[in-house]
């Protein structure tokens, strides 16, 4: 009886784990297919949704399709600029919200959640309405995309840095002050290094949000084409296999960065 119970216990324990792992596998199936298709030779066929022959030529001739690499570079540029600005402004705001008491703090704490809880299509059309009514309707482009990206990245930066900052042991800063470190020295030698993993995670998140955004960007881009807009455009007529190469590279780089940040955080914590 005991053996039977133990067996059923083992099964129930592992069924949950197996189920969970199955869900995780499901999350990776499309990515495995993107990687596989990056080696697909479809030069003989117009069907871009089936694997024909194995080839490296998509990788060696990455920038073959017209306009694709230009759009990737444009997205990287906008992503870096938006990340830089959103990370700096967001980190300052996180310090204000965690370390300072000021009138309107609780309102700000609510406002920063709203962009994360609004549908992108509504935020995108609101911003377009603002630009058009302000007379910038004909001048949509890189600048308006940048403004939009900083806007939706800010909330994510503030929330991420805030989480790290409020988990910080303030005794460490007190100790530095007790040992006659000035306020500036304490900040740069103690506070900043301890908060840095949070800032790095926030920057990483910002960049990938910016690089990947389609709905808000598409409404506010005018004639400018970012990488997701390029993919959207070619999706109507047939996707060049090189798109899968870019997808694979993005996945590998971000996985490496996320894992790197995870180990760095673990070592310091």
């Amino acid at each position: 009886m005991n053996g039977l119970q133990r067996a059923s216990r083992w099964v129930s324990d592992h069924i949950v784990l197996a189920g969970g792992l199955l869900v995780l596998v499901y999350m990776f199936v499309p990515i495995a297919i993107v990687m596989l298709m990056s080696f697909n030779d479809n030069s003989e066929s117009r069907n871009v949704y089936a694997f024909r022959d194995f080839t490296f030529s998509n990788w060696t001739n990455m920038c073959g399709p017209d306009g694709m690499c230009e759009s990737v570079l444009r997205s990287i540029g906008i992503g870096l600029a938006a990340t830089l600005v959103a990370t700096i402004l967001g980190t300052l705001a996180a310090f204000a919200l965690v370390r300072h008491n000021f009138r309107g703090r609780s309102v700000m704490n609510t406002v920063i959640f709203l962009p994360m809880a609004s549908p992108e299509i509504v935020m995108g059309s609101s911003l377009l309405a603002l630009f058009v009514s302000g007379g910038f309707g004909g001048r949509l482009g890189v600048v308006t995309i940048f403004i939009a990206h900083v806007m939706f990245c800010l909330s994510f930066v503030i929330v991420t840095v805030k989480a790290r900052l409020s988990g910080l042991d303030q005794n460490l800063e007190q100790a530095a002050m007790d040992l006659y470190a000035s306020e500036a020295t304490t900040f740069w030698r103690i506070t900043f290094p301890l908060v840095f993993p949070g800032i790095a995670a926030a920057a990483l998140l910002s960049f990938s949000l910016s690089f990947d955004d389609f709905i808000i960007t598409n409404l506010n881009a005018g004639q400018t084409v970012t990488f997701p807009m390029y993919v959207w455009g070619v999706a109507q007529r047939g996707v060049p296999m090189q798109v899968n190469v870019i997808g694979t590279i993005m996945f590998l780089i971000s996985l490496a960065l996320v894992l790197g940040n995870m180990f760095a955080t673990r070592k310091k914590a």
Binding site: L24, I31, V231, V243, G247, F251, S254, V258, L259
Partner: peptide
């Protein structure tokens, strides 16, 4: 980390 990883790959490509 594996849960978050697919999220870092292009929404459209996925």
């Amino acid at each position: 980390v594996l849960v978050i990883a697919p999220f870092f790959t292009s929404f459209l490509i996925r």
